[in-house]
Amino acid sequence: MSTHDHSTLAATRPDFAAIASWIPQGASVLDLGCGDGSLLRYLQGTSKVQGYGVEISDDNIVACIQNQVNVIQGNLESGLSGFESDAFDYVILSQTLQATRHTEPLMQEMLRVGREGIVSFPNFGYWRNRMDILQGNMPVSEDLPYQWYDTPNIHLCTLIDFETFCYDNKIHILDRRVMTGDSEIKLLPNLLGSTAVYRFKRAD
C-alpha cells in the first residue's frame, strides 16, 4: 500500500490513529468485525502488525482480500472458538461493540484470545445526543447515522456506562482516548466527546 493512504484513513477515522499509537511494531492483532480491512491495512502500514480480521459479510471478505488483509469469515456472536487462548497481543473491536448482541461474553472472549483488548464506540452521552433526547428525538448524527427503526446499534452506552461495565466484569482499563471529529477531548469527556477508544486487559 502507498503511504498517503495512512493520512487519508486517519483523517476519516480518527480512532485509527489512536489505536495505532498504542500498538507496537510487529504486534499480532485480531480485528473483530473488520469490515473491508481498512484498520488492519492501516496498521500493517504504520506498525507492521501481523493482522487477521474476522468478518461475516461476503462482500467484506472480498474487500479484505483486495486490501491484502488476512480475513477469517465468521460470526462474532457465536464466540471466538476458532481462536486459541492468548493467541494475539491485541484484539480490537472498532465501532462494533454497540452492535453486538452478546456483548458481555464477547468482551470476555476478547481477553481470552488477546493479551489486551481495544474497543472504540460512539459515546451516547455526547451532548448533541443528549440534546436530541431532550428535544424528544432519538439521536441521528455522523457517529450514529441510523434511524431508531433501522439501527444495528442495540447496545449503546456512555463512557461512564462502559467504565462501570469494565469494573463489574473485572476488566482493567489501561488507556482511554476521547475524540470529537479529529480533536482530542480532555475536559468533560462524557459530555463533550463523540467517540471513545479504550485499551484494557484482564484485572488480575
Binding site: Q50, I72, G74, A87
Partner: peptide, 21 residues
C-alpha cells in the same frame, strides 16, 4: 476447513478463510 485455519493461525501463517453460502 476451520480446523485447517485454526492450525494455520496457531503457526502464525498468513491465511484467509471464506465460507461460501
Amino acid at each position: 476447513s476451520r480446523a485447517i485455519v485454526k492450525s494455520l493461525l496457531h503457526n502464525r501463517l498468513k491465511v484467509s478463510y471464506a465460507e461460501i453460502t
